[in-house]
């Protein structure tokens, strides 16, 4: 199904507009807009794109947007999704460039963003809940999930290396499966 380029742009513009806090917020937003509302992609695909995005150079939110856009409508989709995501950021900086200091250090603005921080974490956990249900389904995925979580929480190993490790485990487990098959033959 080819989605109309304009409707893809619109969704990503909205995502870009709500992309407050860190770039990882793009995941709950895409989960809500593209998986739940539009049904254009699945939670599993989103997890896959996120893992790939962290292990490639570049800004993670931007990479994730491009993977998703490409899946929706090829190169054109990739292009409009990245434009949609960065346009609100671009406009906000241009509009605020001269007012920055006054605004940022206003007490009430800081209070508002303390609150938004809670909203952001809420969104993140709601998305994790959804994705977990879809991505961690059998013994193989549970082992990888627990291993990666421990490495990410308690070691300083970079996320990129953790993803590469997961890829290797995937390849090795396939190899073991093949060997076993050969034995039975």
């Amino acid at each position: 199904m080819q989605n109309s380029i304009f409707s893809i742009f619109k969704v990503f513009f909205k995502v870009g507009l709500l992309l407050l806090g860190g770039g990882y917020v793009i995941l709950p937003l895409l989960q809500s807009e593209l998986v739940e509302k539009k049904g254009w992609i699945t939670s599993e695909e989103l997890c896959e794109y996120y893992a790939l995005s962290t292990s490639l150079p570049g800004i993670i939110a931007v990479n994730t947007a491009i993977f998703t856009g490409r899946k929706l409508a090829g190169s054109k989709g990739a292009f409009v999704s990245v434009m949609g995501v960065i346009m609100p950021a671009f406009l906000a900086i241009i509009l605020l460039a001269s007012l920055f200091e006054e605004i940022v250090y206003m007490k009430s603005v800081q209070n508002i963003f303390w609150g938004v921080g809670i909203g952001v974490i809420t969104l993140l956990f709601l998305a994790i809940k959804e994705m977990w249900g879809k991505c961690v389904t059998d013994k193989f995925s549970t082992i990888i999930y627990i291993l990666c979580l421990i490495l990410a929480l308690f070691t300083k190993i970079s996320p990129a290396l953790i993803v590469i490790l997961a890829l290797l485990i995937g390849i090795i487990s396939q190899k073991i499966k093949n060997e076993r098959m050969k034995k039975y033959d």
Binding site: C47, L52, A127, I171
Partner: peptide, 19 residues
């Protein structure tokens, strides 16, 4: 195929760690 299958729980784990 299997390597990509491993990406899903890995991505989910990294996001959980961020949270």
């Amino acid at each position: 195929k299997n390597a990509v299958r491993a990406l899903k729980p890995a991505g989910c784990a990294l996001l959980s760690a961020v949270g």
